[in-house]
Design a protein around this nucleic acid. Structure first.
Lengths: 187, 187
DNA sequence: GCAATTCGTTGACCAAAGTCAATAAAGGAG
DNA sequence: CTCCTTTATTGACTTTGGTCAACGAATTGC
């Protein structure tokens, strides 16, 4: 649990009472490799903190899988859109390896928001943060070519390149595996 | 000001005391047509509610203007990324017509967050909402062709089609004016 | 109201990514 | 270890949007 508290600390300092309340809401779960944490059509009523393992977040559009995000140990994993809107997910969340997560559900989180102003603030800061993440990804798709997006991964030394099969990286970059292969070939 | 309170009401009910505090922070400004509300390189330390007029939010990439968003009366206008990160903006905000806005700055907003739990919540709900907006736009760029993005505008009866010159709509859709012209011509 | 700019359309050509197919390389299951 | 499936690469060809240029239509400024 300490990893989670460390994660929160970058946003706000929770008092022991607040943290105790938060902890009390988290329930541990395991997901086996290739297991689905969320299926298309389900409402995502949880946010989960990844203690071990990794997930891919993908949707099926026009008959093929398209990966929107990867989540690793130390990240939150959820379909935030479904969670916020309470509408069915159009994405799947699948474990890439055996995983251990700490889950909190919507109702519990709302109670924490009501009870503790600092947790309400934490929620705001996390929402703001997620805004920045998706805004950056939008920029990458609007202003960069596939080659430039790939080069960003290389430049940032992204763990995707070492831990994720290339055809999934291609999907994440919004291109076909053949194209990524060619981008890598012309150096 | 009532339009603003109505806007807030879709998220939370502010008490009269909270609303009075909020109102006290808003300052009215006018921006002439083609005037810049924000320049590239400036830090965006405000959020503004548009009473009258419209704005375009654009950046210059690889030597040409690229429009990320339009804002109309009843919307908030800000560079939310710059506002949240306190880093210089890489976008301009330009008035498309003479405009009247209500501005609040970062320091004032933070004081309101500290003072009123309900306003803290309002901030969270607005951040969550902006997340959804940009996530939807990301989907449009990841999963739809330019033609499909244009057809969405038509289907939703977007006011962009009636109020914004076509070359700006093209930029917003991420394509060249020639391409939008051809999309409209075929069928 | 007229001239000058800006905007929208169209055509010919180009570049980049997709498609389809063949094959090589890598990984897993038994 | 070996076979079988999955993944990565390469080639030939197609598709889509971009580029450059010309021209007509619409705005705007004086």
């Amino acid at each position: 649990m300490e990893a989670l508290r460390t994660y929160f600390n970058q946003f706000v300092q929770l008092s022991d009472a607040e943290w105790d309340d938060f902890k009390a809401c988290m329930s541990k779960e395991t997901v086996p490799k290739k297991g689905l944490l969320l299926e298309e059509g389900e409402k995502c009523n949880f946010i989960a903190f990844i203690q071990e393992g990794a997930f891919r977040f993908y949707t099926v559009k026009k008959g093929e899988e398209s990966i929107t995000a990867f989540f690793f140990a130390g990240d939150f994993v959820t379909n935030y859109r479904s969670f916020l809107t309470n509408k069915p997910s159009n994405h799947y969340i699948e474990a890439l390896q055996d995983a251990v997560i700490l889950k909190i559900n919507l109702q519990q989180l709302q109670q924490l928001y009501n009870k503790h102003k600092t947790i309400e603030r934490l929620g705001r800061l996390i929402a703001e943060n997620l805004y920045l993440v998706v805004a950056n990804r939008l920029d990458a798709f609007m202003f960069e070519t596939p080659t430039e997006r790939y080069e960003q991964l290389v430049k940032r030394g992204s763990k995707l390149l070492s831990e994720i099969p290339q055809y999934m990286v291609a999907s994440y970059l919004g291109i076909k595996p053949e194209t990524l292969s060619r981008i890598r070939a012309r150096k």
